[in-house]
Design a protein around this nucleic acid. Sequence first.
DNA 1: TATGAATGAGTGTTCATTCAT
DNA 2: TATGAATGAACACTCATTCAT
Lengths: 228, 228, 228, 228
Amino acid sequence: MSLAAIETQSQEPVKNGRKSASEVPDTRFDRRLADVLTHASRIFWEKGYEGASMRDLSRATGMSLAGLYHYFESKEELLYLIQKHTFTTIIERLRQRLEDATDPEERIRIFIHNHLEYFLANKEAMKVLTHEDETLKNGRGAEIAAIKRDYYRICLGLLEELGRAQGLQFSGRLAVLSLFGMVNWIYTWHNPRIDADANSLARQMGDLFLHGVIHAAKPKRKNSKRKL
Amino acid sequence: MSLAAIETQSQEPVKNGRKSASEVPDTRFDRRLADVLTHASRIFWEKGYEGASMRDLSRATGMSLAGLYHYFESKEELLYLIQKHTFTTIIERLRQRLEDATDPEERIRIFIHNHLEYFLANKEAMKVLTHEDETLKNGRGAEIAAIKRDYYRICLGLLEELGRAQGLQFSGRLAVLSLFGMVNWIYTWHNPRIDADANSLARQMGDLFLHGVIHAAKPKRKNSKRKL
Amino acid sequence: MSLAAIETQSQEPVKNGRKSASEVPDTRFDRRLADVLTHASRIFWEKGYEGASMRDLSRATGMSLAGLYHYFESKEELLYLIQKHTFTTIIERLRQRLEDATDPEERIRIFIHNHLEYFLANKEAMKVLTHEDETLKNGRGAEIAAIKRDYYRICLGLLEELGRAQGLQFSGRLAVLSLFGMVNWIYTWHNPRIDADANSLARQMGDLFLHGVIHAAKPKRKNSKRKL
Amino acid sequence: MSLAAIETQSQEPVKNGRKSASEVPDTRFDRRLADVLTHASRIFWEKGYEGASMRDLSRATGMSLAGLYHYFESKEELLYLIQKHTFTTIIERLRQRLEDATDPEERIRIFIHNHLEYFLANKEAMKVLTHEDETLKNGRGAEIAAIKRDYYRICLGLLEELGRAQGLQFSGRLAVLSLFGMVNWIYTWHNPRIDADANSLARQMGDLFLHGVIHAAKPKRKNSKRKL
DNA sequence: TATGAATGAGTGTTCATTCAT
DNA sequence: TATGAATGAACACTCATTCAT
């Protein structure tokens, strides 16, 4: 699913988008808008949502200020579109990859890998997602929050599968949020020149997280020497 | 160490260096400025650094706009002071608590507990620290970055102690940054009404992290059945 | 005379003078444009000429922004067309009704009634006429001003007839403009639910005005007690 | 009461107007703001409220755009201040002049004269008052509407006095609103070079209106020939 | 010590209008 | 005949900051 696609989709209710009968997507049209969103993503990443001005976007995209408003209702809509696209894409990919796997550990590793792979390839989007978490208001904010909750629930579900399979007892919430912290934090430190790639990172973080969960949550055996 | 103290200290070079060495510190004065920083912290937390205006701060503190500039060079200095104070305080506390402990695992648990305890009590500061990571420019930015590196190195050191003690082999960098992710992320989700307190959280995260590190990094024993 | 007609008429010189004399008028076409003017009238009334945007008009009429410009040169032309139509219509009706009456008082009552009746039925147009009095520039402004002067002169003529018939001496100008004030002001206060209809209003205002003029202007008789 | 005075008064709740202990009005300060209001009045008159830009006001007053906002919350507040001042002043003057007169006719003539005199001397204010009748929103709009109703009621009261004194029967509402129309309309036509001054105009309009009311409302005598 | 006054530069957004199709 | 795309100029308003007092 391309940025253009999601953009077009959300563009529907805006203005009087006629959208001709035959519905052949005008790719030249869509590409233009997708471009804008890509640039916007970068600018929001560099300067933050508040710090970025529509004039910055105008400059970056080569589109006039008023032209921007021809396509997008407001600065907030740009943020919304970016966040929605990002979340939708990552969830969609995750679902596809999860289809083939049944082993609970494997499935969690898929989750981690999917997350890291996407965000290492789209670091800007990642920061925009996490930094501008509470920026969107009302309807748009609620919509993104709902998608985010979906993502959370998927991960929680995976963890519960694992728990059932191995007879573990632990707080799913804490585990999920700890995992989210680990994998989300990368945008603050990952340097492609010195740090491992998504595959390697996913394996290492998977090891760390899964061993942590499994051993920490294993019902104490009688002869376990000491607390840890 | 009070906010007032750090503030005063950094205020020294500013403008009319009236504050000669021998002078008894005017605590009424200091308290006022500490108040300003506390309010500023809250406002930056609520609106972000860019989103917060000096007028917002003026309103929140009850000090006139010009009054703010009488004490603080610029909006950026306020951010700098807050970040410096936060980091300095947390590191200082950590060092004190570390003094009494020698067991490597115990020391890492102290690190985690210290971090969570401070940030659960100062959630605003936390967000201001992590969100406005790259906001400070030049000298001030470099100074904060240096303190941050200190903090990172302390944590890395603790991990290396553990590795040596237990004969583990793992990437310290990845482990530290994963841990940072886990503990820093709390400001995005911690709800005092439903989530555990710092002690409990520190114990659980400590379990998760330490089991993860130790078991994931343990040199494979010959008879280890399976990958995990 | 329909709005469409006047519109068409003034449209003649615009752009591609396609509309050759012999052509049968396309009424479907005309009705569309008349509709636009009716809507425009309402929007100008609600928001004022300056406050109304072409986008408002586009929305209200369902015609695209560019479509509006296809038929009308500019926003100013829309105002011009509305004002011209309104004035032309009211004068035309007045002339018809005046044809049958000869009594000077009767003729003034016809003037008042015609004015009130039209404007009570077209309150929007009325406000657009009086509020946007000086908005039109150059040629268009002059043309409307000329029509307005016509209307003024007709009324002045009626008053002079009355003066001659009854041997009155008074300032026609002041009387006309006082009358205009009385009857034009209604758009600011008339509430169809509590105020009388055009017939009743015309009678009452006619009484007030005519008694006022006649008694105030009657050459003093020797035994008139006092000024009033 | 000077423009400065009313301005100062309404300025009180704005921002943190400290307003020193002794309360000696700083006339230099007030004069500046009164100046701004006078200029604003003129600009609103020339271009209408919507058509006038804050930049126009900035240019006209010689004060920077941001400076304007230092003193006035918004463009709307400027309009409010002008309207409030105008209405308050004219009502205050009216009340003073009414104090000495007891004859009902005389009192109505005072009303007319007061109105015309003020508005011939302040034609801008007049247009701003009548044209921007519905511009103010919410609280400010309600406040001005209340003052306006006061003014209406005073006039209605005067007419009822006259009715009682002379045993007339007529719609007070219609009479008041007709009178308002007559006297308010002058701003559309009065040309000081060719038209009479306030005194003369007030006398003539007074004659017209009073004769109109009295003769139109006089209970029909048996031998009155015909309707008029 | 502390503030009201003042501002140049910038904000997000809307304007009337043009033009290729 | 009719419209989507596009824009330069303007809009009301806010910004961080300075300065005289």
